[in-house]
C-alpha cells in the first residue's frame, strides 16, 4: 500500500529513534567490554594496561562476587514466588463480585507507584524498627519478642520490601487476564457445581498461564536490577549485596573501572538469558 515515497519517508521517521537506541546500546557495551579487559583505576589512569580476561577471573574468584550472584538470584526467586502466588490470590479475590471493587483496586495497586527509596525507608524505620516500629508493637501484643529485622534478617527484610512493591504489579496484570476470562464460562462453572479447586486448576490457571509467564519475565528483568532498596537500607554488606550493587561499589567506591566493567558484562549475560525468552514470547504475540 505504501508508495516508494512514503516508504522512504517512513524510514526517515524511524531512523532517529533507531540510531539513538543503537548508539545507546552499542557504545556503552563496547566500552564496557573494552574496560573489562583493562587494569584500570580511575585514580591512577596512567597505569591502565591490557590484561585480557584477568578481571573476569578475579571477579569470579572473588567470594564477594559469588555472594552477590547468589544474593541476586535469591532476591529474584523470592520476590517472584511471593508476588506471583500472592498476586494470583489477590487477583482472584478482586475478581469476585465484591462491594467497592474499584476502590479495592486502587488500594492494592498503590504501592507500585511508590518510589523505591520511599518504600525502603518507610518499611525499614516505621514498620521494621525493633523498638518503635509497628511490627515490634504487634509482636509484643502477642507476647513475642520483637524481631530486629535488618540486624538479624537483612536479606529477608529487603525481600519483603521489594515484594511489597511488586505484588501489586502481579495482581493488576493477573486481574486483567482474569477479567478477560469468559463471564459465561465462570457462570457455567458455578452452575455445574464444579468444585472451586478443580475450577481453579482446570480453567483459571491455564487461562492465566500466559499472563503469569509475562509477569515472571518482566519482574525478573526489573528484579535483576534492584538497587535503591539496598542502597538506602543496608548499603550493601555481604548478606544483601547483589550484582548491581557490587558493580556500583567497585566503580564508585573502589574506582576499579576494569572490575566494575567485568561485573557489568556478567549482569548483561544474566539479563540476556531472561530476555531471550521474553522477547520470543512477545514476538509471538505480535504475529497473532
Amino acid at each position: 500500500m505504501a508508495t516508494r515515497q512514503t516508504a522512504a519517508a517512513a524510514r526517515m521517521l524511524v531512523a532517529p529513534s533507531v540510531i539513538l537506541l543503537f548508539l545507546w546500546m552499542i557504545v556503552p557495551l563496547a566500552m564496557t567490554i573494552y574496560f573489562s579487559m583493562l587494569n584500570y583505576n580511575l585514580l591512577e589512569p596512567d597505569t591502565a594496561r591490557f590484561i585480557g580476561l584477568q578481571n573476569y577471573i578475579d571477579f569470579v574468584d572473588d567470594p564477594d562476587f559469588i555472594g552477590a550472584l547468589i544474593n541476586t538470584l535469591i532476591i529474584v526467586a523470592a520476590v517472584l514466588v511471593i508476588s506471583v502466588v500472592g498476586g494470583i490470590f489477590v487477583a482472584l479475590l478482586m475478581d469476585q463480585p465484591i462491594y467497592g471493587q474499584s476502590v479495592v483496586r486502587v488500594l492494592v495497586i498503590a504501592p507500585f507507584f511508590v518510589m523505591p527509596t520511599v518504600s525502603a525507608l518507610i518499611w525499614k524505620n516505621m514498620l521494621m524498627n525493633p523498638v518503635s516500629g509497628l511490627f515490634a508493637w504487634i509482636a509484643t501484643l502477642f507476647g513475642l519478642t520483637p524481631v530486629d529485622w535488618f540486624t538479624n534478617y537483612p536479606m529477608l527484610s529487603v525481600i519483603l520490601i521489594v515484594a511489597w512493591q511488586w505484588l501489586p504489579f502481579a495482581s493488576l496484570i493477573l486481574l486483567t487476564a482474569l477479567q478477560s476470562l469468559d463471564e459465561e464460562q465462570k457462570e457455567a462453572a458455578t452452575l455445574d457445581g464444579a468444585k472451586a479447586v478443580s475450577y481453579f486448576f482446570y480453567i483459571v490457571v491455564p487461562h492465566m498461564a500466559r499472563a503469569i509467564t509475562v509477569v515472571v519475565l518482566i519482574e525478573t528483568i526489573f528484579l535483576l536490577n534492584v538497587f535503591a532498596e539496598i542502597r538506602v537500607t543496608t548499603n550493601g554488606g555481604p548478606s544483601t549485596t547483589n550484582i548491581p550493587f557490587h558493580v556500583f561499589e567497585l566503580a564508585v567506591n573502589n574506582n576499579d573501572v576494569g572490575g566494575a566493567a567485568a561485573g557489568g558484562i556478567v549482569a548483561v549475560v544474566l539479563a540476556n538469558i531472561v530476555a531471550v525468552f521474553l522477547v520470543r514470547m512477545i514476538g509471538k504475540n505480535l504475529e497473532s
Binding site: V18, P28, T32, I243, P244, A251, V268, A271
Partner: peptide, 16 residues
C-alpha cells in the same frame, strides 16, 4: 528495541 530495554543498568554503568 524491546531488547535494548533488557540491558541492565549495571551492565553499562561503568561506561556511562
Amino acid at each position: 528495541m524491546l531488547s535494548t530495554k533488557m540491558m541492565p543498568g549495571a551492565g553499562v554503568f561503568m561506561a556511562i
